[in-house]
Amino acid sequence: MPTFAFLSVCAVPFLWVFLRAICTLIFDKNYFGADPGMELVTFFGQVAIVFLFMTLSFSHLGRPLKTLRVPRMRRILGLSVFFYATLHFASYLIFLAGFEFEKYYYDLVTKNRIILGSFAYFFLFLLAATSIDSVARNLGIAWVYLHRSVYLIAGLVVFHVFLSAKENFSFSVFLFCGCLALLGVRLSKAWRRSKLRTPIFKA
């Protein structure tokens, strides 16, 4: 039951768009503003970023989240990132590239932000594909290293956002600081743990 509730919370942004799309069909009205394509691309991108940062800060939020008793919560969060990134990518393909793959290819070879975004998506895809229990078990320690690339993804995303900004870089600077902070916390924790493991005084 808590899992289902949590899943539905993760699906809220999607359901919100879905509902408006249905209403658009039924009432023949535009619920997406003048430029729905751009709005969807931006919206799904932002939601994916929020979930990405939630995933990254998951272990630091551990205690309050544990009381929710949702098994495999981080995986659900991670897959939500992938889900919204897929929607972001799909709406870019449909609304901005006009569903022409030549246009995507052209952007891919000429525009840095598309290269960065595509790389980030590729890694997200790898992580999502290896998130099944049996795959994780088979990969062993390699799985751990592979899934650390989530920090690489975060870095790529920050630069993707930075290159997409027109004149106001506050959001990307904010993300950059957030990224650094999370990475810092993670590294300092790892460092402390490694110190604990190596005995300083030998008997």
Binding site: N30, G33, A34, D35, G37, F95, D107, K111, R113
Partner: peptide, 23 residues
């Protein structure tokens, strides 16, 4: 002549709808 961050070859004529991007 592209904008360095996106192509200028096409445009979205507004208002468009999510069921017809109107490119």
């Amino acid at each position: 002549v592209d904008h360095p961050r996106w192509s200028q070859a096409t445009e979205r004529r507004l208002p468009s709808s999510i069921f017809s991007p109107n490119i």
